[in-house]
């Protein structure tokens, strides 16, 4: 099912394994989310995202694996604003990391440091490169 197609989603047995896997990997009980949207309204990066963080949460709840194709999971910078604001005590950043990991663990790298021009490598501080590698490559 394409993202945001508006079709009614039913949480069948088939969709459960994905939700359970995300729960396990993130350590967060995604079922607690009641879609208040606080995470999305506080998130500083929504301009660059295709799905709002709260939408990502809903898709995980429903077990929709296509959420892994979204840009959002790569845009989240783990700033933890959502963790501080969520009234249900969910660390949404952990969920985002679990989703990234599910993709990265299938021999996928989101970025390739080989492609950075030498001028950039000369200028960028180690702290930027190390964190980028840890977050966006497998």
């Amino acid at each position: 099912m394409p993202l945001g197609s508006g079709e009614t989603l039913r949480l069948g047995e088939k969709l459960k394994p994905f939700r359970e896997r995300v729960k396990e990997l993130s350590g967060e009980d995604v079922g607690l989310c009641y879609q208040c949207g606080a995470c999305s309204s506080g998130c500083p990066l929504t301009d660059e995202m295709d799905l709002l963080p709260s939408t990502v949460m809903r898709m995980v709840q429903l077990g929709v694996e296509e959420v892994l194709d979204s840009k959002t999971i790569w845009i989240c910078s783990s700033c933890f604003t959502c963790q501080v604001r969520c009234p249900r005590g969910i660390d949404v950043a952990n969920v985002m990391e679990a989703l990234r990991q599910l993709v990265l663990r299938r021999k996928y790298d989101r970025v390739s440091i080989d492609l950075l021009p030498p001028e950039e490598l000369r200028e960028l501080p180690q702290i930027a490169l190390v964190s980028c590698q840890r977050k966006l490559t497998g």
């Binding site: 500083p44 910078s77 783990s78 960028l124 930027a128 980028c132």
Partner: peptide, 20 residues
């Protein structure tokens, strides 16, 4: 004062990070 500066996105999305 505690909003994200763009963090490591400065490596591969430097314009978006710069905007933040």
């Amino acid at each position: 004062k505690s909003r994200c500066c763009g963090a490591y996105h400065t490596v591969f999305m430097k314009e978006e990070a710069a905007e933040l």
